[in-house]
């Protein structure tokens, strides 16, 4: 009892500072320090974030430049068209040589009539030689036409081998491969189906919104499911991503295995790509 009395009198004698109040002061100091460190008090110091580019340095270049395109290379349609167009000029050329024969036949009767009227061996000889020369010319013309036709045929086959308006791939490429980088192909399909509103594109100047989505595809190229790993916080942006993935629910190529990949949707990056 005596000790307690002394201790309590000692406490009254000292009047030490309250630790609870000091903890509060310390907490305020910590908060101030965090504010100072985070730069909140020095005004907005927004750094312009550079867009992120993902460069695949590991995979080999695709076998065919067409690979990775969601639409297949146009194939058979242009083939028959050039063959027909080259073949059309042929008939008139074949008919042409016939006309001179008719023309030759027409002037012939008067000469015959004349010869009957005035039988001249010299004129007959001249006429015969003229006819021979004409026939020779006709046969040469026919030969030239035949050669031209052959040449046209050869050109048609070469044109059919490489269709026009399509980028030529590697000599060993077949033109309809998915490509070595299957993940890049799927990403490209989804991003091509991603439509951004002009409002969002304007917003890209203010902030770089980003979302991360995990997408899973089956071997037949069908979308099995997707999961948003990190949403952007902007409902419009997230909706546009969902629309893009739903649009890409069926790939045009089969995949060698069921695939799950993470696609990063970056507004700033896309906006710069569209400009």
């Amino acid at each position: 009892m005596h000790t307690h009395r002394l201790q309590s009198s000692s406490a009254q004698f000292h009047s030490d500072p309250k630790i609870g109040r000091l903890i509060l002061v310390s907490l305020v100091l910590h908060v101030l320090l965090v504010l100072v460190m985070s730069g909140t008090w020095f005004g907005p110091q927004r750094r312009d974030q550079a867009p992120v580019y993902y460069v695949d340095l590991v995979h080999k270049p695709v076998l065919d430049p067409q690979a990775g395109r969601p639409d297949p290379r146009p194939k058979a349609k242009p083939k028959p068209a050039p063959v027909k167009s080259v073949a059309v000029p042929q008939p008139p050329k074949v008919v042409e040589p016939k006309k001179p024969t008719v023309k030759v036949a027409k002037p012939a009767p008067p000469t015959v009539v004349k010869s009957e009227l005035k039988p001249d061996p010299k004129s007959e000889q001249k006429l015969q030689s003229a006819i021979d020369a004409m026939r020779e010319r006709q046969s040469r013309q026919a030969e030239i036409d035949a050669l031209k036709q052959k040449l046209a045929g050869l050109q048609d086959t070469r044109a059919a081998a490489v269709p026009a308006d399509v980028p030529v791939g590697m000599p060993t490429g077949t033109g309809d491969e998915v490509g070595v980088s299957m993940l890049a192909y799927i990403q490209e399909v989804i991003k091509q189906n991603w439509a951004l509103s002009p409002y969002l594109l304007d917003q890209s100047r203010l902030a770089s919104i980003e979302a991360k989505v995990s997408v899973r595809y089956a071997t037949d190229g069908k979308l099995v499911g997707f999961r948003i790993l990190k949403d952007s916080g902007d409902s419009q942006f997230d909706d546009s991503i969902k629309r893009a993935i739903t649009k890409s629910k069926q790939l045009q190529h089969k995949l060698p295995q069921s695939t799950e990949l993470t696609v990063v949707f970056n507004l700033k990056e896309m906006a710069e790509a569209r400009r």
Partner: peptide, 18 residues
């Protein structure tokens, strides 16, 4: 750790005064 830091600084101030 934030709790440790806050209380430590409170004690440091307290001890300094005392």
């Amino acid at each position: 750790l934030v709790y440790f830091s806050v209380v430590s600084w409170a004690i440091i101030i307290y001890k300094f005064l005392i």
